[in-house]
Simulated assay, not measured.
Amino acid sequence: MRLFDVPGPRGRRRIVVATVASLLAFAALVATALHQFAANGQLQVAKWQLFVQGPVLRYLFRGLWATVEVSLVSGAIALPLGVLLALARLAGTQLLRVPAMLYVEILRAVPLLLLVYAFLLGLSSTGIQMSLFWMLVWPIVITNAAVFAEIVRAGVRAVPRGQTEAGLALGLGNWRSMRLIVLPQAVRQTAPTLVSQLVRLVKDSTLGYVVSFPELLQSAKVLGEFNHTILQSYLVVASVFIVLNVALASSANRLEGQMRGGRNSPRSVASSAREGPDLRQGPTRTRLRRISSR
């Protein structure tokens, strides 16, 4: 299913012209910025030699590791929680569906910065002690779990209804059909989007400055203020974030390619499920029988 038609010759020419114009405008902007930096002495070698010194590199590496650690721990908690919330929103009982819906809709609307301040100021007023690490992690988890829940729910909705009907026809029941047939396909379909959200999660870790957690951006701020190289520190850290996010985006693209070329493609199982008589024979029947016997 295409969301738009393939552009014709005239449309392709317009796309090429717009792309070239955008690249030229971006190049002019970069050239202007470099000219202004040079005019104000910001490109002097002495201001950049700081970033090849061993102690400074170790300091920035500790900040980078803190950023990675926050991102990994937050993602490891938020993703399973998001799956549970998605399943709760898809449940047949309102006892699970309504609270999950309220959580997702409210937490998606609340800014993450507000949650970080709530943990910073609210916990101290109640006397609850929490380390700076978890004071940053939990707001990220709470917000991203709601986003992951919507991504997974959309993936489940995209799986053809015939997949669930095939599982029910084999006596798997609603829960086992969801767990063994529908949910794996939904995760495969939404894997690139989930990885893209992890990229956003890495950028969310930069809010560590609010709680004075020494992640990469906070480390660059301290380093720049101490050595009077704020611009250089931020540019170096921005380059690190670009490399990190490009690596994650490349992983998402490779993952999407592998999912499309995988032998357990949802499309083949979906087509078999829609064709009633063919479901009783062939590899699809064998695969579903093997699942039902678990």
Rank of each mutant, 00 (worst) to 15 (best):
D5L: 12
G8V: 01
R10M: 06
R14P: 00
R14Y: 09
V17Q: 04
S22E: 02
A28F: 13
A28N: 09
A31L: 13
Q36D: 11
Q36M: 10
Q36C: 02
A38D: 14
Q44I: 08
W48G: 09
V52H: 05
V68D: 08
V68N: 07
V73Y: 07
S74A: 15
I77F: 11
I77W: 03
P80A: 10
P80R: 11
G82E: 03
L84V: 15
L84E: 03
L87W: 08
A88F: 07
R89F: 02
Q94A: 15
L96H: 01
V98R: 14
V98N: 01
Y103W: 04
V104I: 07
R108L: 06
V116P: 07
L120S: 13
L121N: 14
L121G: 11
L121P: 12
S124D: 13
I128H: 10
Q129M: 10
M135S: 12
L136S: 02
I142D: 07
V147Y: 15
E150R: 11
I151K: 02
V152D: 00
R153S: 06
R157F: 00
V159I: 10
R161H: 08
A166I: 00
A169G: 05
L170E: 03
L170G: 01
G171I: 07
G171W: 01
L172W: 01
G173L: 03
G173I: 00
R176G: 01
Q189G: 14
T190S: 09
P192Q: 06
R200P: 02
S205H: 04
L207W: 03
V211A: 05
F213Q: 06
E215Y: 07
E215Q: 12
E215L: 03
L216D: 03
A220C: 04
G224Q: 04
H228S: 12
I230D: 08
I230Y: 07
Q232V: 01
Q232K: 04
S239L: 15
F241S: 10
L244P: 08
A247P: 09
A249N: 13
A249E: 15
S251G: 15
A252L: 06
N253R: 15
R254I: 12
L255M: 14
M259E: 05
R260F: 04
G261P: 00
R267C: 00
V269E: 09
A270G: 06
A273I: 03
G276T: 08
D278C: 09
L279Y: 00
G282I: 00
T284S: 06
R285Y: 05
R285H: 04
S293L: 10
